[in-house]
Amino acid sequence: LPNGLSPAYRQLNCDDPETEQAALLAVDYINSHIHQGYKHVLNQIDKVQVWAQPTGESFKLEIDTLETTCHALDPTPLANCSVRQLTQHAVEGDCDVRLLKQNGQFSVSFVKCKSSPDSAEDVRKVCLDCPLLAPLNDTRVVHAVEAALAAFNAQNNGSYFQLVEISRAQLVPLPVSVHVEFAVAATDCVAKEVIDPAKCNLLAEKQYGFCKATLTEKVGGEDVAVTCTVFQTQPVVPLPQPDGPDVGVPGPVADAATPEPSPADLPVASLVVGPVVV
């Protein structure tokens, strides 16, 4: 810009259709670039600034999102994903987004998000008995996931599935139990024939799954019930380039292999395995 001139600024309302279009595109972009945790939906647009650029306009947005029940690897379209309710201990995301609008087309140039669960006090306000989110590295959580995955593989006639990440966990007081959700991926081993799981490798054409399980403590033992949904295989795609936009809705981190990116518009899950109840 010439000295003494400030860039042209355009006032836009947060609920303006143009702002919403930009925000929804940003949310789609986020969901197609995260590989951990859950997909998010747009909840509120906090702020919008529009500046003139030599080749178009620059949009700077602050948006609030809410976690859905669809895992990031789940190809279900976002419109079909349910928002995680307050009673399930909701999680919100706060994102700073920048987009360019050139020739009427938006493109995302920068995204930075952080996510945080609702406070325990807020959950208690709507439900006294609702279990709160538990740390994913809690020994009871890890044990429940291991038991559930072992139970699933024991009943599975196909590939051996490996843990990708633990995505959610809740400790339930009565009956004493642990509810967990985790992502899995198919390997080149056959589930019934595995001797050393460490020697199994993820398939080149990735096949992910998402499991929900409950491990209930009983006198003299425990029961585990697990249901896994295995998604359609995903074609091999190149890894993201290092100079690409910085994107992420930080979710819970697990000790697992990082999956490769998946296209955002894959067809809905085509295969459901389970429930396997042991």
């Binding site: 836009l12 509120q44 906090d46 928002v83 307050l86 919100e92 609702d118 807020d122």
Partner: peptide, 27 residues
């Protein structure tokens, strides 16, 4: 016709540009 400039301004809808509407719930 009598104009009441003071009251006319107060009677109109207040447009708050930001933040926008909450689609689900606020936490």
């Amino acid at each position: 016709k009598v104009a009441h400039p003071n009251t006319a301004a107060a009677a109109g809808p207040v447009v708050r540009p930001c933040p926008g509407r909450i689609r689900y719930f606020k936490i």
